[in-house]
């Protein structure tokens, strides 16, 4: 019988300091045993494990179309994430996954997709964007709205620069307050969403970010007449097992680890508000 609690060994092929305050690092992980590589979809997550320190869940930031590595961006905040930040390239780390459900990319086919992100919650949105671009002909317009407090906190800046040059993707970058040298949008994500005003016609929207951003973006999307069934988001909760057993990540009867982390706004409206 498969034992869902046993991690497989992976190692960091490349580690990038992602933000100017050094609290975010990105890890390109490779499997130590090639046969343990798995299929997944954008939106799924894994448990990363430092033996002796513990495990924590992270959204997969790479697209399944990027076969050479699994990407994770880790915010240093607790015991496990600090231990991950101590890792050096080539050092081993444990991984369990892929866990949870994914963004409904099959439903997106032939439709416009709007991706709205804030801060370091852009990880699985990167996975989604790269996935959509890799299968570009399957989808219509792709719009990405991405904001951070300041320029140095935007993730994946080299890629953002490349995306800006593309004519098959509309990228709107924004920061909270104007700083010298920034010539793009300034303003909070909900406000910018209102300005950009993506059309709900034949469209799906995925929104991820800090709770406060989600809270103020959802009404904007409703105003733009996106139906709740077409708005998706990804939730986070304290997790341990990741497989629906340990009993802590539930919101009402739904477990974020197995019923989520991706939920439609319509599904969330049926759940009790547990902040």
């Amino acid at each position: 019988m498969e034992n869902p609690y046993i991690p497989v060994p992976v190692k960091a092929k490349k580690i990038t300091v992602e933000s100017d305050d050094k609290t975010l690092r990105t890890y390109d992980l490779v499997f130590c045993n090639e046969e343990e590589r798995f299929e997944f979809l954008p939106g799924q997550f894994c448990q990363l494990s430092i033996l002796g320190k513990g495990e924590a869940p992270f959204g997969i930031a790479s697209s399944p179309t990027e076969k050479e590595f699994l990407k994770f961006t880790v915010n240093r905040v607790g015991v496990v994430t600090t231990a991950i930040h101590w890792l050096e390239e080539g050092e081993p780390i444990g991984l369990r996954g892929p866990l949870g459900n994914s963004y409904p990319v099959e439903k997106f086919k032939g439709c416009n997709v709007v991706i709205i992100g804030g801060g370091f919650a852009f990880t699985t949105l990167r996975a989604l964007t790269v996935y959509l671009l890799a299968k570009r002909q399957d989808f219509k317009d792709i719009t990405v709205i991405y904001g951070a407090r300041r320029p140095g906190l935007l993730l994946y800046q080299n890629e953002l620069a490349q995306w800006e040059k593309r004519d098959d993707l509309k990228l709107h970058l924004t920061i909270d307050e104007a700083v010298s040298g920034w010539n793009k949008r300034v303003g909070f994500v909900p406000t910018v969403t209102k300005e950009v005003a993506p059309s709900p016609q034949n469209a799906w929207v995925v929104v991820c970010g800090p709770p406060i951003m989600i809270k103020y973006t959802l009404p904007v999307l409703s105003e733009l007449e996106f139906p709740p069934e077409r708005i998706y988001t990804s939730l986070e909760r304290r997790m341990k097992c990741g497989v629906g057993k340990c009993g802590r990540c539930n919101i009402g009867p739904k477990y974020v680890c197995v019923d989520g982390p991706v939920f439609s706004y319509a599904e969330l409206q049926k759940l009790p508000m547990e902040e």
Binding site: Y5, L51, G52, K53, G54, E55, R237, R238, K240, C241, K245, C246, G247, R248, C249
Partner: peptide, 28 residues
């Protein structure tokens, strides 16, 4: 339940699970 790591020295240890309770504030 909770899952925790117990280290016994630098290179060895174990991952255990222990009963936990939703009545504790640390649970979530």
């Amino acid at each position: 339940f909770d899952i925790q790591d117990e280290r016994a020295g630098n290179a060895r240890g174990k991952r255990i699970r222990v009963w936990d309770s939703c009545m504790f504030s640390l649970f979530t």
